[in-house]
Design a protein around this nucleic acid. Structure first.
Length: 213
DNA sequence: GCCTGGATTATC
DNA sequence: ATAATCCAGGCA
């Protein structure tokens, strides 16, 4: 018999914070190439204290050679954390307004990080699928800011937990990095296909009904 | 030191 | 389409 199409998070039972804590990912999860980690993070839970969201969209930023990455200038006061070992948070202020949450990946010295671009509400958040749609909204929803920079995700109240496996993952170019030349076109953005909490890239057309002629 | 421009979002 | 808002990083 036909199984009804699998729907994303809202139909799955919301886990408790206690259940998520038992599924915390170890540092070794992040000690791999950023493209692997960025893809596998989709479906995982991002947990901060008593709040959690399911990661539905990520972007991979490679080392110093990636013209779109903050690592492109080498280690600086702000970005030196990117050149440490994976599994540490990197939070920075963008446009003077928005806090962006990233996770360093790879081995020490590589300069890689994954930007968390969208989460769907799991625990302690409004049911509104738009609450974590967009990187600035992710930090607002989870009450994260620059004070959470350089945290070890293997310990403490901020961490990633295994949660769901997406039925399909879509990929495409990263958002907002047009200045990076050909690096901008690399398909290093990963998202849970058709999930309502995924952000809309600028220029991406919203679904539109046929216009009457 | 000064100047430029963002890994964005809300609103006009 | 464009303002909001601040600071990192380049260059003098």
């Amino acid at each position: 018999m036909t199984r009804s199409p699998r729907l994303p998070a809202p139909t799955e039972p919301a886990p408790s914070i206690e259940a998520l804590a038992k599924r915390r990912l170890p540092a070794s999860f992040f000690h791999r190439d950023v493209l692997v980690v960025a893809r596998e993070l989709v479906g995982c839970a991002l947990v901060h204290r008593r709040r959690a969201g399911m990661i539905v969209e990520t972007e991979a930023y490679h080392g110093p050679g990636d013209a779109a990455s903050h690592a492109r200038f080498g280690p600086t006061a702000r970005t030196s954390v990117m050149f440490g070992p994976g599994g540490i948070s990197y939070v920075y202020l963008c446009y003077g307004i928005h806090q962006m949450f990233n996770i360093v990946t790879g081995a020490e010295g590589e300069g890689q990080a994954v930007l968390i671009r969208a989460i769907a509400p799991l625990v302690g958040l409004p049911e509104d699928p738009g609450v974590g749609r967009g990187p600035g909204k992710v930090t607002t929803a989870l009450a994260l800011d620059r004070s959470h920079d350089r945290r070890d995700l293997a310990r403490g109240a901020l961490y990633v937990a295994a949660h769901a496996t997406p039925p399909a993952i879509a990929t495409g170019p990263r958002v907002g990095v047009a200045y990076a030349g050909e690096w901008a076109s690399r398909p290093w953005r990963f998202w849970w296909k058709d999930h309502p909490a995924v952000s809309k890239a600028p220029g991406e057309k919203r679904p539109r009904r046929a216009r009457s002629s």
